[in-house]
Design a protein around this nucleic acid. Sequence first.
DNA 1: TTTATATATAATCAATTGATTATATAATTA
DNA 2: TAATTATATAATCAATTGATTATATATAAA
Lengths: 104, 104
Amino acid sequence: MEQINELAENLKLLGDKTRLTILALLKERPLCVCDIVDILETSQPNASQHLRKLKSAGLVSETRKGQWIYYSLNIEGKIYIQAVLDYIPSLKQKIDPMKNDCCE
Amino acid sequence: MEQINELAENLKLLGDKTRLTILALLKERPLCVCDIVDILETSQPNASQHLRKLKSAGLVSETRKGQWIYYSLNIEGKIYIQAVLDYIPSLKQKIDPMKNDCCE
DNA sequence: TTTATATATAATCAATTGATTATATAATTA
DNA sequence: TAATTATATAATCAATTGATTATATATAAA
């Protein structure tokens, strides 16, 4: 039943509005923390803490680019997460307007 | 974003070991509460409360048969839940040994 | 109609969680 | 090097949650 425990842990992570939205955003493209903060209209520590949980579970990975840290989706082999994200309407329109507003 | 909220609520329900196991069991066949209690080796109120949450979310439905109440899976149209349950190895061997042990 | 069985509900409580506030670190720019 | 920007971490706190204990309801059997 170890399989179920691990699955439940991952699903618990998805079962939060903020984190689920972050994953849906990252489905479109990698984003830095300040992008996410702006889009979600939340505080920077709040975004960071949710990202940390997602990272601990291995669902996202990060790359630093100068002073920005970009997070991207890392869900290979987790078909059910893909199925969940496919269920969410694209948030592309939330991202595009910000292009170059924030970083770089 | 109402879509995401509802999805997160459902995923939060799946993000619990006990409830996820109940769903995986019901994937095999409908079960009464006493079946679930025996298989999970938990208390009757605990099973009942989890079943109530699943029922409130519309993920399971119930039918009374005499003094037993059978719960069954009700996830039509929720592809992501099917994907999650497909990810779990079958629990059939947990169910079969109990056949006719408990009810009726 | 009393007793037993199956299930639900309510109350309680400890543990977990999400958000906020404050502070620290790291990279960049002036 | 000082100031600024991006991000992380730590501490705090209210709210939520899962489990337990106790009790209620409903069906069936004696």
